[in-house]
Design a protein around this nucleic acid. Structure first.
Lengths: 252, 252
DNA sequence: CGGTGTGTTGAAAGGTGTCAATGCTAGTGG
DNA sequence: CCACTAGCATTGACACCTTTCAACACACCG
């Protein structure tokens, strides 16, 4: 795990959105003053239970998921560096889904009350938090579309491209490649398929020269072809500008 | 279309969450002062275009959707009385998905700037709006799970139960029955299936005595059996209490 | 009364799931 | 340093849920 200055993750994320003042940056750093290390495969948030904290990932992967009868599982979304976990602890008493660490995790633990303080005192940061929440919603919408109206082949490639784009945006991808700690079984639970079929689909993508992969590592070899074959349009990940009326409103 | 006092929809929705003061109620009514009538099948919001307004539904149905190549379509969510449409106009410059009226629609049109005013001046209402956004996110999460890890039979029954519950919560269902303006084709685009298979699934549900339906109308005949058969747990729709720390914080 | 959208049904094809076995790799302990 | 184990990846054969294609029924509406 990289040795990061705690708090830099969120500053980076918001810097693409706002021109942060020194004051705002230190507010964000203060928000992330309490870093905690977690082991892989531990639940940060458990469905239907109170949500004690909000977190911001400094390093490692986590994922939101739901459990069904029969042991069926559905992954809703992955959480990477700079992403919030349990942001809705501020307005929900109980968790709507569980969140689990996929790798060892460095997270900043935040008391929901601190989020309320941000909303009260620093409107521009509050807007940035709302924007982050909206982006998470956009990712969920794309996940619905991926599962509901794409073939296994398209789903798999599309998700890989989403994660590549997201990893790039936090400087964790290079040369179309990134660390990928997701097992094929978890991939199946993400894309609504079986592990066996995920395996065959990955194999097809590999044999076509679109990707290469090994345990914990994935590389997109022909990004253009893969984007076209899977209908990937990164628009939903790239909204990095607030509406102009908002910019004017919250500056004062 | 019923003749509703404009603005009562949102007051009702938030009343289950907060004990609204007279002042707050009139603020909410003021927010909904501009009612507009729209015809069925018209787009309120179009993907990738600027979002001119936020809306609150007073009467009628709408749905969020995405379009893919090949004319494929995916419905993300339905919007009923009291629901927001385009809430993220406040923080996003462009729309992440389209929203279309399913029936004739009575909506209150809100300038996103007014939402900002609410956040600045009435923190309890701001919290309620965040709560509504969170609830929409929870519904998206359940939609992912429904499509990703349930059979056609389960998906169909599960969605019917969700809509029944949501219609009940805005007093539009009675005796387990409600108006249901969704065609089988749109249902298919909601559940990631084909119209033909939706037809067969509905037929099965009917023949088992779990539901009855006719054009524009649906009734759940055996709610308990249907809930069990489809694994429906309404928890994600029923969070009507803010965290205690929030309640304390925003009262002052 | 004909047109158009929606619902219904049958037969066949196909994508994905199921079952089961094998291979591979990393870690563990003797 | 080498068995041994556990977890994950890979592969084949077959079953089945869902799709596809096509035709027909029905209701509403101008």
């Amino acid at each position: 795990m990289q040795n990061l200055e705690a708090g830099i993750a969120l500053v980076n994320k918001f810097s693409s959105l706002l021109d942060l003042s020194g004051e705002e940056k230190s507010q964000l750093m203060a928000l992330q003053s309490n870093t905690v290390q977690l082991e892989a495969d531990s639940d940060l948030i458990s469905f239907s239970e109170p949500i004690p904290f909000t977190y911001i990932i400094q390093d490692g992967w986590a994922y939101s998921y739901k459990l069904l009868a029969n042991g069926r599982m559905q992954v809703l979304n992955y959480h990477l560096r700079g992403d919030f976990i349990g942001l809705y602890a501020t307005v929900f008493r109980y968790a709507e889904n569980s969140v689990r660490s996929l790798t060892d995790l460095a997270v900043c633990r935040i008391d929901p009350q601190e989020i309320i303080e941000v909303f009260r005192n620093t409107p521009r940061l509050a807007a940035a938090i709302c924007w982050a929440a909206g982006r998470d919603g956009a990712i969920l919408g794309e996940q619905i579309t991926r599962i509901g109206r794409r073939t296994a082949y398209e789903r798999t490639g599309h998700l890989i491209l989403e994660l590549l784009r997201r990893m790039e945006s936090v400087y964790l991808a290079e040369d179309n490649a990134f660390e990928f700690p997701v097992t094929q079984e978890l991939l199946a639970d993400t894309l609504g398929l079986t592990p066996v079929h995920i395996n065959r689909t990955l194999r097809t993508l590999k044999s076509e020269g679109k990707i290469s992969y090994s345990k914990n590592h994935i590389k997109v070899l022909d990004r253009k072809a893969l984007s076209e074959a899977t209908g990937f349009d990164p628009f939903y990940l790239e909204q990095t500008a607030l509406p102009q009326n908002l910019e004017g409103q919250i500056d004062g």
